[in-house]
Design a protein around this nucleic acid. Structure first.
Lengths: 255, 255
DNA sequence: CTTGACTCTTACCTTACGTCATACCCTACA
DNA sequence: TGTAGGGTATGACGTAAGGTAAGAGTCAAG
């Protein structure tokens, strides 16, 4: 019969000393002997029991249940395992749902980054840049665009990044609320903030009437097939939602 | 602007009052107003923010992170989501492993129930019963079997159930250790207990030499294809493991 | 003015340990 | 024999996200 100190046993089994203290306190694994100085000493039998404990712990059983399993020889292990299995499957399903939500959010986030880029003329590959620029000038007038670009250049990199990030966050929240009522208060709140940021970025110099500019932006989202890429399915849905929300915002602002 | 009391807001959002108290304390959601009597009053803005909080909570974000997301407009949400996604996938993989282990354990548990039944002549459907009985008599002698059956009848239902349950638990643990060394102390401990129980159940009256009986049992496991059913793949593996463990037990007991 | 519903703060409980703090124990080496 | 270094024991606090409860104050209706 071997004698293991707490440290030795902890190394053997790959657990911390604290864990052994705790298991002792819980009555899950008592040392076979206590020395005069109250040192814990474990024998082979305890090592075996510890292995059992660790197996069930691996399966994410709570320590209370493990105690019941090990203490009560009449414990229905099979039923416990089946119940535990069901719980694990439910957890997995929940995780799948969460990942799905995140994926959707990420896809639209990336698409929205495109939208921002469109708004801001930033980060577009050079070869595409000129095409966007020309298109924008045709849509909103040459002077409008030149003045907006001037404003953009006046921002520091940090200001730029902060504003873009906040815009991105707002878009994410809008994405999240995509299936709710576009006229609801939370959505409109986001739309308002978005409007403010975009105006700030364009230096308040959009001449065609600010709300009109915003409306055009909404139409653009829905009409332009650049916003419904093949691998970003939710985008069209989002664009329509955004337009609806922006339209309602413009209406209520006009009053 | 509406005014919501804690209770109203909690009903609206589907959270507990305690949760609102906590969020206030954490600075996650402060009431817009405190009345003279220190009652919390929330407005529509707070309702909106609560919705945001609950969205991220749904995604299993810790409250600290949620606070960071909502407070810091420069927070990199996309990166946070991607990191979170990775963590969720890791969790899912772990769950898959756990379910796999449980499945294997359950399958062999059920097979082992068959083995026990073979040992104990209990619970076998009547039509099969006679065949098993005749086979067993041919293998171990008529007198052995008759005397074993006599012993079994002398147990009360409760004793019977307890012994079977303990046997089942031992088999489960052996299953769990299937991929380890069959001569290791933990395994041999289980084998010894198993041996004792089987002897107890047969009333100690197996005449052919108790260890010899045990050895035959081991061979039977490996040879008989009843123990390797189609839907219980690990069974053959287990049978071989059991035989190896039992062989080693018999050897070391002989010394 | 009382009753009942509501609210406040404070504080302890939960899991499975990690991380000190303080003090005691043991052994090897000078 | 003294001491340095490592092992050990106990106790207590902290973690995440609230649940539960105690004791006291508040509000509106009858």
């Amino acid at each position: 019969m071997n004698n293991y100190s707490v440290k030795k046993l902890s190394r053997l089994a790959g657990v911390s000393v604290r864990t052994l203290h705790l298991y002792d306190e819980l009555g899950l694994l008592k040392p076979s002997v206590r020395t005069e100085a109250r040192y814990r000493l474990y024998g082979d039998k305890e090592l075996l029991r510890l292995q059992q404990i660790l197996f069930y712990r691996e399966l994410d059983f709570p320590l209370k249940d493990i105690l019941a399993i090990l203490e009560d020889p009449a414990f229905d292990l099979q039923q416990a395992l089946e119940g535990h299995r069901k719980a694990l499957l439910a957890k997995r399903e929940r995780i799948d749902t969460l990942v799905g939500t995140i994926d959707k959010t990420l896809v639209t986030l990336k698409n929205n980054t495109m939208l921002q880029v469109e708004d801001l003329y930033e980060g577009i590959p050079n070869d595409k840049m000129e095409a966007y620029r020309a298109e924008a000038m045709a849509k909103w007038g040459k002077d409008t665009i030149l003045s907006a670009e001037e404003t953009l250049r006046s921002f520091s990199k940090e200001e730029m990044r902060d504003l873009q990030t906040e815009l991105s966050n707002i878009n994410t929240r809008l994405t999240v609320m995509m299936n709710t009522d576009p006229t609801s208060a939370p959505v409109q709140e986001c739309i308002a903030r978005r409007f403010k940021i975009i105006l700030q970025l364009s230096g308040g110099k959009i001449e065609m009437g600010k709300l009109e500019y915003f409306r055009k932006l909404g139409e653009l989202y829905v009409q332009d097939n650049r916003y419904t890429p093949v691998d970003g399915m939710p985008s069209l849905e989002l664009a329509q939602f955004m337009k609806a929300a922006m339209d309602h915002y413009i209406e209520t602002q006009g009053e």
